Amino acid sequence: MLQFAISLGMVLLCAGGVVVLALVLAWQERAAAPDVRRRRLLWLVLPVASAVLALLLGAVFLLMAIWSPQSADILASL
């Protein structure tokens, strides 16, 4: 049962990550001038995208770990 709860949480985390990426990219594209768009890209979009993608990679790794044959040992250590 714990596997399903963690899996649901990771799916929600992935969906939230996609929403955050969409919001940040839409905000960046709404800038009036090209230089403002470039500044927004460099100072906010790229760091946020890096952090969100790192979280998504961690979520996928955790899902693969808890659904592996050794998941009982992994879940016992949590």
Rank of each mutant, 00 (worst) to 15 (best):
F4E: 15
I6W: 04
I6S: 07
S7T: 15
S7M: 11
S7C: 04
S7L: 09
L8Y: 10
L8N: 11
L8W: 06
G9W: 00
V11A: 14
V11G: 00
L13Q: 04
A15Q: 09
A15E: 07
G16A: 14
G16H: 07
G17E: 04
G17R: 02
V18S: 10
V18Q: 08
V19K: 08
V19E: 10
V19Y: 13
V20R: 03
V20K: 06
V20E: 03
L21G: 05
A22K: 07
L23T: 01
L23N: 08
V24I: 13
V24Y: 03
A26I: 11
W27C: 01
E29S: 15
A31P: 00
A31M: 15
A32G: 13
A33W: 05
P34G: 09
D35C: 00
R37G: 00
R39S: 11
R39M: 06
R39K: 13
R40G: 11
R40A: 12
L42C: 07
W43I: 10
W43P: 00
W43E: 14
L44H: 03
V45W: 00
L46C: 06
V48K: 00
A49R: 03
A49N: 01
A49M: 11
A49L: 05
S50R: 10
L53F: 06
L55D: 04
L57R: 00
L57H: 02
L57D: 05
A59P: 04
V60I: 12
L62D: 07
M64W: 10
M64Y: 06
M64T: 01
A65Q: 13
A65V: 14
I66Q: 11
W67N: 15
S68H: 09
S68Y: 08
S68F: 02
P69V: 07
P69Q: 08
Q70C: 00
Q70D: 13
S71C: 12
S71I: 02
A76E: 11
S77H: 05
L78Y: 12
L78K: 05
L78Q: 10
